[in-house]
Amino acid sequence: MSGNHDHDHSHGHDHDHPGVKPEDTSAPGRYELMTLAMQELLIEKGILTPEKIRRGIEALDSWQPSRGAAVVARAWTDPAFKAELLADGNAAVSRFGVDMGEAKLTVVESTSNVHNVIVCTLCSCYPRGLLGLPPDWYRSKRYRARIVSEPRKVLAEFGTVIADDVAVRVHDSLADLRYLVLPKRPAGTEGWSEEKLASIVTRDSMVGVAVPMPSAT
């Protein structure tokens, strides 16, 4: 167990434990037990197999922000693709082999006048097919509570200072939509290849807590 996380684990908790390491041996919580029980039942009834579950986790873990970065780089270089991405995100990203499933991808474009940032205040909705698993800070109650009420301060803590004449637009992802920020293409990247552009599009810039930096490469 991590040092700053020493409270009694006997309560029926449902919060995230970003500090817990894989070798943690503390007793499983109520929700973990329910998950295990459900898993055992599904296997017993032949609906799932351990192999299927393992493959599902493996696929989930294989998703990386590079998938989102490739989409952004294409949108920066191909106006027709960008128009499609903004109008019908699911169709546009399916060209990259990304299946959004039941969720509806909504791409929000940052410009010289608007800076977009994403949160899910209810849980941790996140465009996993494009960005992989969300980072611990995105799932933290602290980020979820503060980014909606003092976004400029939180962004500044990430090193992202937004000018007063640029509107900060927060998107709270609460229902069946998933959001992706299409960051503003930085100056100094004229003539770059799609591949080189993708290399500066980071996970954080697609969540909106950072902006792509051409000097980062």
Binding site: P151, V168, R169, V170, L174
Partner: peptide, 29 residues
């Protein structure tokens, strides 16, 4: 039906610190 509803941050948080153009979009049924 699901809608995205846009709110002015100053209408949501009386003590909001930021530009009057700052907004928050929320998915609402």
């Amino acid at each position: 039906r699901l809608y995205r509803v846009r709110f002015r941050q100053h209408d949501i948080w009386p003590a909001y610190r930021g530009s009057t153009g700052d907004t928050i979009d929320v998915d609402i049924y």
